[in-house]
Design a protein around this nucleic acid. Structure first.
Lengths: 354, 354
DNA sequence: ATGAAAGCGCTAACAT
DNA sequence: ATGTTAGCGCTTTCAT
C-alpha cells in the first residue's frame, strides 16, 4: 500500500491563488478579515482544484474534528440487529443525526459501549482519545448514566442526552415520555376505558419511570384508580408476556393496556389471543414504539410515535451550536411525540360482536 | 470552547517509560525490533496512563486513518429510513461491518452518495479528501457504477464491491444472487410448481439480471418454459403491484411468484388478495429479502435470507487484509444465501381446501 | 535494538 | 487585511 498523501492541500490552493496559507484557511473557515475579492479568488482556486480540507489536519492543529459520536448501548443494539425484528432506532437516529451533520460538514460515527461493563469509562475515553469528536450524543440508557455524564462533564466536550431530563451536565433532550404516556392514557379514557393497564419498561431507563408518571397523572385526572394495573417488564418480549398475563388473568382485568415498547405490545397481543380476547373488542392496546412492524400486526397497533429522527437532529444542532461558543441552553429541550391511530383501540362500551 | 488537546500523548508515555517516542510508536504498531522487556515496560506505561493514539495524528504522519467508509445510495437509503418499513440493510451492514471494524481498531462511517447525480465523483472525492479512509465499501447500486470504480481504482485505496461480480478493480463480493434465485426456483419446482413467475428488480442493479439468470437456468433445468412469466419492477411497492397484476391477470397465471425484494413481495400478496387468490393455496410467494416484516405478513413469507452482515464483515476483512500489504485476492468472494421457510409456499397440486 | 530529526496539513498566535 | 512562525501528535526516514 502506498503511503497516502493528500492530493490537493492548502498549499496548492495558496500557490494557485497567489496568497498565503492563512488566507486560504480563513476562507475555508469563513473567518472575517478577508476582502471579498480575495475570498472569491481563493474560492475559485478551491473549486478549480477540488480542494477539501483534511479533517485529520484540521483536528491536529487544534481545530474541530467535525466528528460527532453517537453512543449506543452495545448489548441492546446488537441484540436488536441480530433479532431482525424491525427495531429502527439506529436508522432513525442516522436519518436525523447524519443528515443534520452533513448539512454542517460533520460526520456521525455510531459507537457501541456497554453500559453494564465496569470499563465503560475506559471505552469512552478511548473513543474520545482516538477520534477527538466535537460532540457526543448519549442515547438511553447511557443518557442518565452518572459515570458517563460525570466523565464527559470533565472533558469540556459538548454532549446531548437523549431521553434525559438532565440533572447534571450536558444538553438534555426528551421525547416527552411523561406527556405521551399521559396522552395515550387520556386517549383511552376519553374512549370510555376505566381500567387502563400499563406495562412499564426497565427501571434502568429513567424514561420508564416518567412514562409511569404520565400514566399515573392521567389516571388521576380522569378519576380512575391504578390499583393492580401496573406491571413492570424489561422491554423484552418474554417480560411483556409475563406482565400482560398477570394483568389479564387478574380478577379485574384492564380493558386496555399501554405497553412501554413494541416487543411488549406484541407480547400483549399474543397473550390476548391465547386468552381468546379479541383486540380491540375485548382489549385495546397501545404501543409505545411505532416501529415498522406495528403496521403488520393483527390488528395493526395504535402507537406512540417517538420522534427519534427529529430528536437526533436537534441533538446534533445543539452540539454544533454549543461548539460555536454559544453557551449551552441548559434547558430541557422537548420534542413532542404523537399518537398514530391504527386498529387496536376500541371505544367503550365495546362494540357488539358483528 | 476550549482548545482541545490530547490528554495523554505519546510523549507522556515515552517520558513515563523512559524511552524515545519512536520506541513507543513501535510498540503501539506492533513493529519488530523491540526487546520484549522494553515492550512490556512501554505497555505498562500505556495501560497506566490510559494512552490511546490519536487517529488524526496517525493519519497525519502518513499512517492509517483506521476509517472505513460504507458508501450507500443516498436516495434509496433515506427513502427506506423515512418509510419505516423495516428495511434493515443498513443495520445489518453495521452489524457485520462495524463489529469487524471494531475488532481491528477501525471505525466504519456510513456515507450517503447519490448515484444519479453528476457529481458523484466530486462527492466521493470530497469524502476521501476529508476523511482519508483506509478503505471503502461500495453497496449496490454503487458497486457496479463505472465512474466510481474507475475513480477508486486510480486512488490506490482498497475497496470492496458488495453485490458485484467485479469486472474491473476492487474486491468483489457477491451474495450469490444467481445461485439463490436458482435455489428458490428449484425449491418451487420440486414442490410441483410448473409456472413460476419472477418479478425482477431495477436494471440499475446488476444483481437484478443475475437473479433473472438464476431463475432462467433453474427453469430450463426443470424443463419449464418461461414465456410470459417474467416481469420487471424497480424494487418499489407500486412497481411490484403492477408486475404482480400483469402476471396474475394473464391467461395463464403462475402458481408461484418469486419477487426480487420485500416490497414487491408484499405487493404481490396484496394483489393476490384483491384477486381472491389464497396464499399459499392458490399462489405461492417467495421474497428475495428476509426483512423483519416477512415474519408478520399473512401468511408469513418464505424468503431468501441474504447474508448482509456476513458480507459486510467479509468486506471489512478483505479491506484490512489488503491494507497489510497482502495483494488483493481479486477473485470473486461468494457468501451463500439460504432460504427461510415460512408459510407462503404450497406443494403442487394445491392442497384441497380444508 | 534504539534514538533523533524532519515533516504530514492545518490553524492559533503573533506580526505587519 | 494579510503574512509568518510555531506547533499539534504521530510516523517516517535516517542515524547510531
Amino acid at each position: 500500500m502506498a503511503r497516502r498523501r493528500q492530493a490537493v492541500t492548502i498549499k496548492h490552493v495558496a500557490a494557485d491563488a497567489g496568497v498565503s496559507l492563512q488566507t486560504v484557511s480563513r476562507v475555508i473557515n469563513n473567518e472575517p478579515n478577508v476582502r471579498p475579492e480575495m475570498k472569491q479568488r481563493v474560492q475559485e482556486s478551491i473549486d478549480k482544484l477540488g480542494y477539501v480540507p483534511s479533517i485529520a489536519a484540521q483536528r491536529m492543529s487544534g481545530s474541530r474534528s467535525y466528528l460527532i459520536l453517537a453512543l449506543n448501548d452495545r448489548e441492546r443494539t446488537i441484540a436488536d440487529w441480530r433479532a431482525r425484528q424491525g427495531t429502527d432506532w439506529v436508522d432513525q437516529m442516522l436519518l436525523g443525526g447524519m443528515l443534520k451533520c452533513a448539512e454542517h460538514g460533520y460526520r456521525m460515527i455510531v459507537e457501541l459501549v456497554d453500559t453494564h461493563s465496569d470499563h465503560v469509562e475506559r471505552e469512552l475515553l478511548a473513543a474520545i482519545a482516538a477520534l477527538q469528536p466535537d460532540g457526543i450524543i448519549l442515547t438511553p440508557p447511557h443518557s442518565d448514566n452518572p459515570q458517563l455524564v460525570r466523565l464527559l462533564a470533565g472533558h469540556d466536550i459538548p454532549f446531548a442526552r437523549i431521553g434525559s431530563k438532565g440533572d447534571g451536565a450536558g444538553l438534555p433532550i426528551s421525547m416527552d415520555d411523561e406527556g405521551s404516556a399521559r396522552a395515550a392514557t387520556r386517549y383511552l379514557a376519553e374512549r370510555g376505558h376505566r381500567r387502563i393497564g400499563f406495562i412499564a419498561g426497565s427501571s434502568e431507563y429513567n424514561l420508564s419511570a416518567w412514562r409511569v408518571d404520565g400514566w399515573t397523572a392521567a389516571m388521576a385526572e380522569a378519576g380512575l384508580g391504578t390499583a393492580g394495573l401496573l406491571e413492570t417488564g424489561d422491554f423484552t418480549y418474554a417480560s411483556g408476556e409475563r406482565a400482560a398475563r398477570r394483568l389479564l388473568e387478574s380478577s379485574e382485568p384492564p380493558s386496555a393496556i399501554i405497553a412501554s415498547n413494541d416487543q411488549m405490545a406484541l407480547a400483549t397481543l399474543e397473550v390476548a389471543r391465547s386468552l381468546d380476547l379479541r383486540v380491540p373488542q375485548d382489549l385495546s392496546v397501545i404501543s409505545f414504539d411505532n416501529s415498522p412492524l406495528m403496521h403488520f400486526t393483527q390488528p395493526p397497533l395504535t402507537a406512540i410515535d417517538q420522534p427519534i429522527a427529529a430528536t437526533a437532529s436537534k441533538a446534533v444542532e445543539m452540539i454544533i451550536a454549543s461548539q460555536s461558543g454559544e453557551s449551552a441552553p441548559k434547558l430541557l429541550t422537548v420534542i413532542a411525540a404523537s399518537i398514530v391511530e391504527r386498529g387496536s383501540v376500541a371505544s367503550f362500551p365495546p362494540q357488539p360482536v358483528r
